[in-house]
Computed example of a mutant assay.
Amino acid sequence: MPFLTPIPRTDLLRRLLAELLGTALLVTVVVGSGIMAQQLSPRDVGLQLLENSLATAFGLTVLILMLGPISGAHFNPVVTLADWALGRRTRTGLRSAMVLPYVVAQVVGAILGAVLANTMFDTRTTIATTHRATGGHLLGEIVATAGLILVIFALARTGRGALAAPAVGAYIGAAYWFTSSTSFANPAVTIGRIFTDTFAGIAPTSAPAFIGVQLVGAAVGCALLLVLYPDVARSADDVVIPHLDQASA
């Protein structure tokens, strides 16, 4: 079984590099487009959000298509944890030994992505001061994260993984607007956005609450998946899209 076959060291490094690079570029897109939006539309917050959300939706789609065949394009610790947890019973999905390296690569990449965006726009890398942890925002993060998990795993389970890139990009773009939190839905991205005091920033005092409810949202999404698709674990290997293990097999 591919689950039991050791991953060659070179393949492991490629996967971690893909996760680091993908998460870094995702945060660069989020932060950079937020800074550009502030510069182009300084008096219109609604237009700033539109510009930021469109860039993020398109950028995420491209990154999944580009790096997904290598690592699965998780770029998100809650996706990694859900992939691991759902696959335990059927010995599918991400292996236990890969969970921590994936998450570390994602977090490091997110921080580097914020620094890169700040540097490109000649903005000093400083700690964000935007406080976001209100009750409504935290509920919005639960909804956004649960929905993201549902979208990703439902597509894999129903054999429509080819649609994952545009579907995930479209969902995140839409969730910018229908959730009060503007849909972070990603602990690594949340940590990265601490390091930019711009449109996309989040104060470090708000980040722990955001990360906590994102984990709750992931658990809610997994619970709903197990009700809606009881055999969802069988397709955990295809999250977000089929990647290195399956290509090698």
Rank of each mutant, 00 (worst) to 15 (best):
R43C: 00
A128F: 02
A85D: 00
F199Y: 15
I241Y: 05
A174E: 04
G135I: 06
M66W: 15
N76K: 08
L17A: 15
G192Q: 13
F210L: 14
L86D: 12
T130Q: 14
A97Q: 14
G93V: 09
L100H: 00
I7E: 07
T145V: 05
G221P: 11
F3H: 15
R234E: 14
T126H: 10
T80K: 05
A164L: 07
D11S: 11
P42D: 02
I111A: 10
S180E: 14
T125Y: 03
A233P: 04
G173W: 01
F121H: 13
A24P: 01
I7W: 01
T80S: 14
A188D: 10
T145K: 06
L67W: 08
D44W: 10
A233W: 10
P69S: 09
G147C: 12
G169P: 02
I241H: 07
A200F: 04
G147R: 03
R132L: 14
A219W: 12
S71K: 09
I7C: 04
P187K: 12
M98S: 09
T134Y: 02
S180F: 08
A218T: 09
C222D: 06
N186Q: 12
E141A: 04
A154K: 05
F195P: 00
Y171K: 03
L228D: 07
I172N: 01
I70W: 10
C222P: 01
G34W: 07
L60V: 12
F210A: 01
A85P: 00
P69K: 14
G135S: 13
L21I: 15
A146Y: 09
H131V: 15
L17I: 13
L13N: 06
V99A: 01
R157G: 05
L26H: 00
